[in-house]
């Protein structure tokens, strides 16, 4: 893989899966290493930071919960951009990117939900509150699962990519509406006593570990995304090889 033709000169050169794979082979150990370092620092700071005077130890859940929630939204944005790539530029790697991101997004959203629920039990006295944020994240989770189900239901990857791209974009346009309506619904029903995460200010003692953890989670996402894309490309190559094998067997007979 050392031919000069494989060098990436323009961004559009990434369109070539072979070049992309070559790039991934170089980049992913660095990404993974950076992720590990960030997590080491972030986790250390998270556990070393002082307890919140109100929330006590449970404030540490926030260091996982907030980054996961942030990623659940960023991942959908990545998918929406990929969907544009699929529909507008018909970029085969965009198909792969959207498909690879969906399970990751679902995973991070699930983490956000579970940690939110764990945090809610001591804070609110219950595992689940129909709080505006929790509810909209839950709806987002359902949308991720629907996308995964759609992808699995179609056997032709190109068509599955196009269908899910449209669904992703429809969902993307709708997310603000859903969020807005859930908030409306919530103010209508909500008892006023629920403690909200967003206090007036966050003390810097909490902010730093939070920022580093958010960065670590983002890097984790990119590492996993790039590797998942690589796996998907390899999977498609295997499918092509199998089809070739089937056809050449037919010709030999």
């Amino acid at each position: 893989m050392s031919e000069p033709s494989l060098a990436i000169r323009k961004f559009s050169d990434l369109a070539n899966p072979t070049r992309f794979l070559a790039l991934v082979a170089i980049v992913w150990p660095w990404l993974a290493g950076l992720t590990v370092c960030l997590f080491a620092v972030g986790l250390y700071l998270s556990f070393a930071s002082v307890d919140d005077y109100q929330q006590g130890q449970t404030v540490r859940i926030m260091y996982v919960h907030v980054p996961a929630a942030w990623l659940s939204m960023m991942c959908y944005t990545v998918m929406a951009l990929s969907a544009l790539g699929t529909l507008v530029w018909r970029h085969p790697l965009a198909d792969v990117s959207a498909k690879a991101a969906a399970p990751l997004g679902a995973g991070f959203t699930l983490v956000a939900l579970i940690t939110g629920s764990l945090w809610g039990k001591p804070m609110w006295g219950t595992w689940w509150v129909w709080d505006a944020r929790l509810t909209s994240v839950f709806v987002l989770f359902l949308m991720y699962l629907g996308l995964i189900a759609l992808n699995r239901a179609m056997d032709d990857p190109t068509r599955a990519a196009k269908a899910s791209a449209i669904l992703i974009l429809v969902g993307f346009v709708n997310i603000p509406i859903i969020k807005f309506s859930v908030e409306w619904w919530n103010t209508l029903h909500q008892p006023a006593s629920v403690i909200r995460m967003d206090g007036p200010t966050i003390d810097p003692a909490f902010l730093w570990p939070l920022l580093i953890m958010a960065f670590a989670f983002t890097m984790l996402f990119f590492t996993l995304h790039v590797l998942a894309m690589r796996n998907e490309i390899l999977r498609r190559r295997i499918a092509v090889l199998r089809r070739h094998a089937a056809r050449s067997a037919g010709e030999a007979a």
Binding site: P17, P92, R237, V240, H244, E251
Partner: peptide
């Protein structure tokens, strides 16, 4: 078309 099908992958 009997030749090898080109593919992007």
């Amino acid at each position: 078309f009997t030749g090898a099908a080109e593919t992007v992958w």
